[in-house]
Every structure is written in structure tokens, then in C-alpha cells.
């Protein structure tokens, strides 16, 4: 009965997605919510207010309120991500936003990454649950305990942890704090979410046709900076790097090459569920705010199908997982390798 062990937490970006997600088997939902006052000063595109750019959050209070009401009617708790890193000028407007969230019954809590903001919520008697985002960088049981003492109810663990390390955190901690893990997709290029300060900009294309064959595009100049951490992959892929000896600082001859099969990874932890089902992990996180809902719905159904497998061996379970991965990501053209795991054990 693996299914009953975990809740499925799914993202949504508009009201129409709620019912299909519920039908697919989501147990709880999360979304972004910002308002005009905030976005005028800190455009959504720059991932300052939360970790999604344009199109990834509710931007209108009425739409947000209606969606929360709908989710409540569907018996789905809603968590709101405010997982940016904030500076003092932002706090008064964030305070207003939080107040407008705090009074909505359907919202069960906030997902936060910033220590200052967490303390601010405590100081202002925020009544709902506080979850520590993966941006809170919890890698050990002491960090979990630290956040629990500050009032956190759930911790979203970083992707770059093995199932053994996750189990270790949980077994060492004899408290009631809950854990959530990422389950599928978005590996984040090999960097740690909460420690990555690479520029990221998610801007919607805004091109206007001025004349035949001429288009005007208003943009934040982001193409000249290349896209966030993708730049790093491009540099390696194209061999645009030099290698130096640490001791002598002299340029070295090297045979280092970018290898698509090993460097390109989708990011997945489904196989780990066989072992992790023994531990009190509350929730499995499906990602994809702002992406096509149909993909999330399909994914939830498949994961639930997988979790309903009972009394099978680890090998059979893992075969099912690999089948799912192969079908979802590679359209059955190839099988996954250990390089597709969130944090593979390369010694195996």
C-alpha cells in the first residue's frame, strides 16, 4: 500500500486546472501569487518574488481567491509559494500580500526560502503552516530541527540527496516535522537551488509586427546574458573553456568532453520510493508551474499507478519505474541511465 504513504502535491496556475488535477489524484496543490504593487517594482520575469517567472503565478487577487475557493470545494489544500529572497524595501508590500492570503480559508500555508521572511512571518503572527522550500537548503537532520524550532511544519528536501541520506535525516530526527521530496523532472543543471545565484529570467515573448518581415521585440536584454544556468551547459557543450593546472596555473592539455548521454539528465527519483516508503515522508512534489496541465495530470496518474504496485520485488518496482520514465521522457526510444537520477551514486 505504497499509495497511502504519500500525498501528491501538484502545482496549478489557473482555476481550470484544479478539477483535472483532483481527478488525476492530487491530494494538495501549490501555486504562486503576487500582485501589481509588487510586480511593478520587481518584474516577475526576474524570479525575485518567487522562483518562477512570467506566467507561473496568479497575478490578480480575484482570480486567486476564486481558485482557492474552488480548490477548497474540491477538498484540496492550497499552499502558496513566496520563495524568493527579499530585501527590506519589499517587506511592507509582502506584508500586505501575506495578510490577504492569511484570511483565505482554503490556503493552508506558505512555502518560503528566505530566513528573514520566515522570521518576519513569525513576528507578525502568521497563522497558517510554513513550509521550507528547497531554497532553504536542508541537507541534514540538524537543519530540519533548526527550522522546526522556528515554526516550520514541513521541509522540502533538496534534490541532491541520496535516498540513504534522506532516510538518515528522518531517522535521526525524533520530531513531528514533515518532509516533502521532489519526484520527477527539473534537475536544475547540477546546481543546488538554494545556493544558485545564476541570473534566471523567464520572460514571455512580446513581439509586435511593425512591417512586412520586421518585428519589434521589447525585452529585458536577457538574450545578451544567455539564459540562466543554461549558459553553463552551452559553454561546456561547445568546448568554450580552458583547463588550468591548480598548482602551476598553467594551461593543460585535456581530454575533457561534454557527453550528452551523461550530462543531459532529466531528473527523477521514482525508483527510490521503494525504499523511502518505509519512512514518514508526507508528500511527493510534482513540479511545473506555468507548464501544460495535461502533462502534470498524466504524470500524476502514472505515478499513482506505480505506487499502487503491491507485494513486488525491488527489481520489478524499478523496472516499472524505468518503463514509466522511458515512456514519459524518451517516448520509449531509450531507457534511463543512472545519470538521469537527481543525485546518482556513480560508484554503483
Amino acid at each position: 500500500m505504497v499509495r497511502k504513504k504519500f500525498k501528491i502535491l501538484a502545482p496549478f496556475t489557473n482555476i481550470a486546472e484544479i478539477e483535472p488535477l483532483k481527478k488525476a489524484g492530487a491530494d494538495e496543490l501549490y501555486c504562486g501569487y503576487v500582485n501589481d504593487d509588487l510586480t511593478k517594482k520587481w518584474p516577475l520575469a526576474f524570479n525575485i518574488l518567487n522562483r518562477r517567472g512570467e506566467g507561473g503565478s496568479f497575478e490578480n487577487h480575484e482570480d486567486f481567491k476564486k481558485a482557492v475557493k474552488k480548490a477548497r470545494a474540491c477538498n484540496l489544500a492550497v499552499y502558496v509559494t513566496l520563495n524568493g529572497l527579499y530585501t527590506p524595501e519589499q517587506y511592507p508590500l509582502l506584508h500586505k500580500l501575506v495578510k490577504s492570503i492569511d484570511c483565505l480559508e482554503g490556503v493552508k500555508g506558505l512555502i518560503v526560502a528566505d530566513m528573514g521572511f520566515l522570521l518576519f512571518l513569525r513576528e507578525n503572527n502568521f497563522k497558517k503552516e510554513i513550509h521550507i522550500s528547497t531554497g532553504g537548503t536542508c541537507f541534514n537532520s540538524h537543519t530540519a530541527k533548526f527550522f522546526e524550532n522556528l515554526g516550520a511544519k514541513r521541509i522540502i528536501l533538496d534534490r541532491a540527496l541520496t535516498s540513504y541520506e534522506i532516510a538518515n535525516i528522518i531517522t535521526r530526527l525524533h520530531t513531528k516535522i514533515n518532509f516533502e521530496i521532489f519526484i520527477f523532472a527539473e534537475p536544475c543543471g547540477g546546481f543546488i537551488d538554494g545556493f544558485c545565484t545564476f541570473f534566471h529570467c523567464f520572460e514571455k515573448a512580446n513581439t509586435v509586427q511593425m512591417a512586412k518581415n520586421i518585428f519589434l521585440n521589447l525585452s529585458y536584454n536577457t538574450d545578451q546574458c544567455e539564459k540562466g544556468c543554461m549558459f553553463y551547459g552551452d559553454v561546456l557543450r561547445n568546448g568554450h573553456f580552458e583547463v588550468f593546472n591548480v598548482a602551476s596555473h598553467k594551461r593543460m592539455k585535456h581530454g575533457l568532453r561534454w557527453m550528452r548521454s551523461k550530462a543531459f539528465s532529466f531528473g527523477c527519483r521514482i525508483c527510490d520510493l521503494y525504499d523511502l516508503k518505509e519512512y514518514p515522508i508526507e508528500s511527493l512534489k510534482i513540479i511545473g508551474r506555468g507548464t501544460r496541465a495535461v502533462e502534470r495530470v498524466e504524470l500524476i496518474s502514472k505515478i499513482l499507478q506505480l505506487l499502487s504496485c503491491q507485494g513486488i520485488s525491488r527489481e520489478s518496482f524499478q523496472k516499472h519505474c524505468k518503463d514509466l520514465f522511458s515512456e514519459s521522457v524518451f517516448k520509449n526510444k531509450q531507457r534511463c541511465t543512472k545519470f538521469d537520477c537527481y543525485y546518482p551514486d556513480l560508484s554503483k
Binding site: 519589499q90 518585428f215 521589447l218 525585452s219 529585458y220
Partner: peptide
């Protein structure tokens, strides 16, 4: 097909935010 890119200026608060840090928060 030519696409002419014109700067969409960010608000000054964008730069101010990048100059600061979470440690500036009194709380």
C-alpha cells in the same frame, strides 16, 4: 525576417534589489 530588439527598461528597484542582501532585513 528581422527582429529588432528594443530595451524594456527595468524599474530602478530591480537594481537596488540586486545591490542589497537578505541580511539587510532588520528582523
Amino acid at each position: 525576417r528581422k527582429i529588432i530588439k528594443v530595451p524594456k527598461k527595468g524599474p530602478p528597484t530591480l537594481f537596488e534589489h540586486h545591490q542589497a542582501s537578505v541580511i539587510n532585513a532588520p528582523v
